[in-house]
């Protein structure tokens, strides 16, 4: 049964959370805590930090994340195709190649227009 396998995954998830949180709780008890205003400052290599940290970042990051999502969705289709390939004929091969060719066109376009260039 599928649920029993995931019962273990759930148990492991809880266990991992516990395993990670336990030291955090432990240091609350045994480690010293003497906060001072200067200690709580943000690190800036000896200077006082200026301005806001949460500022607008470049579009570049978003573009790469978007490319990543597209290729991630592609894997959703690649895995079942690969797993069932033995029971399928040449047409499955052609179908997947058409699918991949379309994505490759997208990748080539992104490359050609310079979107893959990190600056």
């Amino acid at each position: 049964m599928i649920l029993s396998r995931y019962l273990f995954i759930g148990m492991l998830l809880l266990f991992a959370i516990g395993f990670a949180v336990a030291p955090l709780v432990l240091i609350r008890i045994i480690a010293p805590r003497r906060p001072t205003p200067h200690k709580g400052q943000t690190v800036e290599c000896g200077l006082e930090t200026q301005g806001e940290t949460w500022i607008r970042f470049r579009l570049q990051y978003y573009i790469f994340a978007l490319l990543f999502v597209v290729f991630d969705v592609e894997t959703v289709f690649l895995y079942p195709w690969a797993a069932s390939y033995v029971s399928l004929g040449w047409y499955a091969f052609v179908e997947m190649m058409v699918f991949l060719a379309m994505l490759t066109v997208g990748l080539v376009y992104a490359w050609a227009i310079g979107a893959l260039k990190w600056q």
Binding site: M102, G106, Y109, I113
Partner: peptide, 14 residues
């Protein structure tokens, strides 16, 4: 779906 993915990719980049 492949076409859609490509369209979204190209559209976003453009």
């Amino acid at each position: 779906v492949g076409l859609l993915l490509t369209a979204s990719l190209v559209g976003a980049v453009a």
